[in-house]
């Protein structure tokens, strides 16, 4: 058993202790080092008044059993009162379900690909292609090609305020809607303020108003 490893760091704060547990090492090493520190090297913190303890597991993906195992070791020590035990969410695990926001005009010959779900504020013109591993939501006119669930997800959907695509694809299913040039008026608009006055404009002009958006400029 190694004593020098620094998988477990104990920090004192105003009203207690924080146990920072490394999130890279094997979980077993973590447990044994924790046990060793409490039973041998850090005996001094266990004597004295009751101490509040926060446990931080970092970015390690942990199950309830894992948390239980950590708690088990600490519970054995009489004066440690466990206040919280937390693990930060692993980046990416949640993002897959989140909508990614983009704006602009996807023009002929341009391709936009996104891994995950995409909310596109603007038009997809004929000859433009939008592909997504998840769902595609278009606030604007879809006149080009949209391909949702490119990796084979048949549950994916394509939504558009004005649905007039040259072609639609979901997973490996291809559909070709009746060929017709758009005749309906695009009705989706957005409201914004200019000098305190309410303005209404078509959604594709959002970029001109909201410079802070992620604007697609073509590939």
């Amino acid at each position: 058993m190694t004593v020098k490893s620094k998988h477990v760091r104990i920090k004192g704060i105003k009203d207690g202790l924080i146990f920072l547990l490394d999130d890279k090492c094997p979980f077993e090493d973590l447990l044994s080092e924790l046990r060793y520190k409490l039973e041998h090297s850090h005996q001094n913190i266990l004597t004295g008044p009751i101490v509040h303890v926060d446990i931080k597991l970092g970015n390690r993906p942990v199950t309830e059993e894992d948390k239980e195992a950590v708690l088990e070791i600490l519970k054995g020590q009489g004066n440690l009162l466990i206040r919280s035990i937390e693990a930060l969410p692993v980046p990416g695990s949640e993002d897959n379900d989140a909508l990614y926001l983009m704006s602009g005009i996807l023009r002929s010959g341009q391709v936009l690909h996104h891994d995950g779900n995409l909310l596109y504020l603007g038009d997809v013109n004929p000859g433009g292609t939008i592909t997504c591993s998840g769902d595609i939501y278009i606030l604007g006119s879809l006149r080009g090609m949209a391909h949702a669930g490119v990796d084979g997800n048949e549950e994916a959907i394509i939504a558009a305020s004005l649905m007039s695509p040259t072609q639609l694809r979901i997973a490996d299913i291809i559909s070709r809607p009746p060929d017709e040039w758009e005749t309906r008026e695009s009705s989706m608009e957005f409201a914004y303020l200019t000098n305190g006055a309410m303005q209404i404009d078509k959604i594709h002009n959002l970029v001109k108003v909201r410079q802070d958006l992620n604007v697609f400029k073509g590939v």
């Binding site: 023009r107 002929s108 341009q110």
Partner: peptide, 12 residues
């Protein structure tokens, strides 16, 4: 269609 392509290129 071609004008749209050109506009895309000009915007870049």
């Amino acid at each position: 269609r071609d004008a749209d392509r050109i506009i895309g290129l000009l915007e870049q």
